[in-house]
């Protein structure tokens, strides 16, 4: 009896923060609907700072920031949401919209990169684990049913191919840790030819632009790539999105 009571109490306590999150979420939505975008973004941001990491939350926060006129932060949160749900059409459309509004050029991945980005890193892991289990099952069946051995062995090549594909997909997302993405959050970002103050100016990067890190200088300079061109930018202008 005591154990049952303890379990019920634990479940009740666990549901408390969820209820609080739901309340904040609905309140933020109301503020958004009433055109109080700064209130909405503040409520969403509070939830994020309290440790909630939902796609819907990141997306709604980005929407509120966009409506409130903070394009760079909106793009930053859209991109965060995109990492978790890359096939979500709403996130893709709004990010595209926001980048265009900022006058920034959208990253142009290759066909292979686009295909591999169809699934998120977590989804690729699920595919890999599923394929691994399926491969083991098919091979076990092939051993146990000698009559179907040939066909089952052939069929087990499919999960092997899936495992290889998942590895490629996972590696593509891993690249974001090696060459992270940054968003330009301060205006006046002009890249230089070298990581030295006073170096020749190379090109301007618009506010809100998504740039890719290529290398890092220990003195706080980051070599970025934007629209196929590389240049050095001071860290103060950009905010890292990638994990």
């Amino acid at each position: 009896m005591k154990t049952i009571f303890a379990v019920i109490a634990a479940l009740f306590l666990a549901s408390l923060p969820a209820a609080a999150f739901e309340k904040d979420f609905i309140e933020a939505q109301t503020a958004y609907d009433e055109g109080r975008y700064s209130d909405a973004s503040m409520l969403y941001a509070d939830m994020v700072s309290n440790g909630v990491d939902n796609v819907a939350l990141q997306y709604n926060l980005a929407n509120a920031l966009f409506k409130g006129g903070d394009l760079p932060e909106a793009i930053w949160h859209y991109r965060k949401a995109y990492y978790a749900a890359p096939r979500d059409p709403d996130i893709g459309a709004n990010m595209h919209f926001a980048l265009n509004a900022a006058g920034a050029i959208e990253p142009a991945p290759s066909l292979i990169q686009r295909s591999l980005a169809t699934l998120s890193q977590n989804e690729w892991i699920v595919v890999a684990v599923g394929a691994y289990a399926a491969m083991a099952l098919l091979l076990i069946l092939a051993l146990l049913i000698p009559a179907a051995k040939r066909n089952l062995s052939k069929l087990s090549l499919l999960p092997v191919a899936l495992i290889l594909l998942s590895a490629a997909g996972w590696w593509q997302w891993k690249q974001l840790e090696i060459h992270p993405e940054w968003v330009v959050v301060n205006s006046g970002a002009t890249t230089l030819y070298g990581p030295v103050t006073g170096s020749t100016a190379h090109f301007k990067v618009p506010l809100g632009a998504l740039v890719r890190q290529k290398s890092v200088d220990p003195k706080g300079w980051i070599e970025i790539e934007y629209d196929g061109t590389r240049g050095w930018l001071e860290r103060k202008y950009i905010k890292r999105v990638s994990p």
Binding site: P17, A18, V52, D53, N54, A56, Y59, A93, A98
Partner: peptide, 12 residues
């Protein structure tokens, strides 16, 4: 832009 997303069923 596309409107807000509804209340999520699960909080992460």
């Amino acid at each position: 832009i596309v409107y807000l997303k509804p209340l999520p069923k699960k909080w992460t």
